[in-house]
Write a protein that binds this DNA or RNA. Structure first.
Lengths: 364, 364
DNA sequence: TTGTACGCGTTATCAG
DNA sequence: CTGATAACGCGTACAA
């Protein structure tokens, strides 16, 4: 069986298709045709190129709005080799500190006309590698990274270095890189906080630390040790626990303390983060110890929970927002040629941290 | 004055340029040339197209690795009209709930081969609009959005609807959209929690709510009211405070309660989030009221602070991780043609929420 | 001040 | 199974 389709019918069918709710993008060519000018002029006009007369520029912008034009970033990126996108690679997204960092970053990025692609390594080097590769493929204009718990080297960032794509480390930085790092004075803060505990009368101070592979934990440990030394207190391995600083790790630390012979128990604890500090506190409180009379506590980060626990936890106000904003602002300036991040091992240090000694009473 | 440049010199100069430390990308053409095959074949081989013989496919992959090839996503996106990027637009990045959502999203996105572009509206419609436009320009394959505090309509999402780019609402959804929404049973949870307070002996229960423009706060308010009604308790405007549910708002609520004549004071408070609940608690505790004997509390979200406050706060375990994973998984499936999100006003409801009644003692 | 012409790197189409 | 060729939408020398 055969169907005959008249030329006319065919034409109409075609028309119908052509007139269907357009699935084509509106391009600068459409605008150009609309205004009887060239696409090049439109392209320039859209970017406020001063070479284009004010009048035509205006017309172009209006036509663009009228036609519902939306610039195509790929085409643009393909041509200009700029994505206006920054990659952010963090260990975890869901900690108070990190989400503050991201909030600060997003704000600064937005202000500078950049977008953020965010990924988490979940503390796993392999995921970190994979994510780094993806970001590279996405041609981010720059990378901001805080290293995973067990990252040993940064070979996976070589592609960035080779292509001179700026990499900014923050918080958990890499010691031997030539990149810029945004950090706080972890050593100093730890020193201060430990000293504070000592001044409150603590003589046996325990430290809950993280993996010393990461600068933050290494520096905090060192600050703690130096403070002990400077005040004539001995350092003991028995009073130094290293863990992931999770809630469970805090609880575990409490158990450890309670199992210690009465005489060997610490009367002060400096934890490298608030979470571990607080769950350790809770463990001890549950066992009947008084805080801070029996054991005084200090943490790190100024997490919201530190203001809720009783008594309030002395802690270091480590502002994620600041870190995030500083990191992005520096990177954006670099990309816009305002500064140059590639001075060897350039370290930008935020020194606005405050030790909050909220309710720890002097035990002298 | 004229310079004469010999053909030879010119050629050498050109050579020098060509041999300069390559700043050109390695493309599929380079691979093609390397293997004496066509770029088309390389393109196919790289994507494991079964039409290409296993042998050549292998060779292609090897050559790619050898030459250090990195696919150019723009070029690919420009051609294929797919970005493998999803836009996420949230009110704020730095709340425990939202960062959990993002963590869940990132995980699911990664698993499905998508990247996330994340932006925050800071509870401001205007920023929401601007961000939506950017995401559209970046040609995200789909948009996930939780509305700002004061968003009235969703006209700014029209571009997405017009182009049939899937939009998924989550948490703070839009009632009259034809899009899929990922929500929990806010009404039911509020009803349950309020009932719980009533069963503990509370007769005058206050509600700290948010802007009823947002479904979450509206539904929680209604669940609260229905529970009162079903248990023969009167509803009173005096016991309903609406705010941003911030720390300050919680403190403010405490002040409000304390200023109330003794007889009009609530003996129970249901807050639409944990933060306000806890700062209200703290305010009352400071004033000498006993929790829960004088005033019992219940919150919403299962924020970490709810496990730290004393006594522990009864709350609704609203899992951001689940919401995030569900949202992305559904969107990804839709994009891959597994399901279709565009059933009118399709609502995907997570019902795995649990009311944790940790330490609230029966006051009968 | 504006237009012409070409290429960015990939994928789709069609032809072998 | 593979190759040639034409887009995709934009930016930019160069020319006018």
């Amino acid at each position: 069986m055969h169907f005959f389709i008249s030329e006319k019918l065919f034409f109409f069918g075609l028309q119908a298709i052509i007139n269907m709710p357009e699935d084509r993008e509106i391009t600068i060519y459409d605008i150009a045709k609309h205004l009887n000018i060239s696409a090049a002029t439109v392209s320039r006009g859209l970017k406020n190129n001063p070479m284009i007369s004010k009048n035509t520029r205006k017309k172009i912008v209006e036509a663009a709005k009228e036609l519902g034009y939306q610039s195509n970033t790929f085409a643009s990126s393909l041509r200009s080799r700029q994505t206006h996108t920054l990659g952010v690679l963090v260990p975890r997204l869901n900690s108070h500190f990190m989400s503050s960092v991201l909030a600060g970053m997003e704000k600064a990025a937005n202000r500078n006309g950049y977008n953020l692609i965010i990924a988490q390594s979940l503390e796993d080097v392999e995921k970190e590698k994979a994510n780094a590769a993806t970001m590279f493929n996405k041609r981010v204009d720059g990378l901001l990274i805080s290293l995973a718990y067990n990252t040993q080297d940064i070979n996976h960032l070589e592609p960035f270095f080779n292509r001179k794509i700026p990499v900014v480390f923050f918080d958990r930085v890499y010691a031997h890189s030539n990149s810029t790092s945004i950090v706080i004075d972890n050593y100093g803060a730890a020193y201060k906080v430990t000293t504070h505990l000592i001044e409150q009368g603590c003589r046996r101070i325990m430290h809950l630390g993280g993996n010393v592979l990461r600068n933050v934990y290494k520096d905090r440990l060192e600050g703690y040790r130096q403070a002990l030394k400077d005040h004539g207190l001995p350092y003991s391995d028995k009073l130094y626990l290293t863990s992931t600083l999770s809630e469970d790790a805090g609880t575990e630390a409490a158990r450890y303390i309670l199992e210690l012979p009465q005489k060997e128990r610490p009367n002060g604890v400096f934890s490298a983060n608030d979470t571990a500090a607080i769950y350790c506190m809770i463990g001890l409180k549950t066992a009947g110890l008084r805080i801070p009379e029996d054991v005084a506590f200090a943490g790190f980060n100024n997490d919201p929970i530190s203001k809720v626990i009783e008594p309030n936890l002395t802690t270091v106000d480590y502002s994620g927002n600041n870190i995030g904003e500083t990191a992005i602002t520096n990177l954006a300036n670099h990309l816009q040629g305002v500064n140059n991040l590639y001075m060897t091992n350039n370290i930008i240090l935020r020194s606005d941290l405050i030790v909050r000694a909220s309710s720890l009473k002097n035990k002298s």
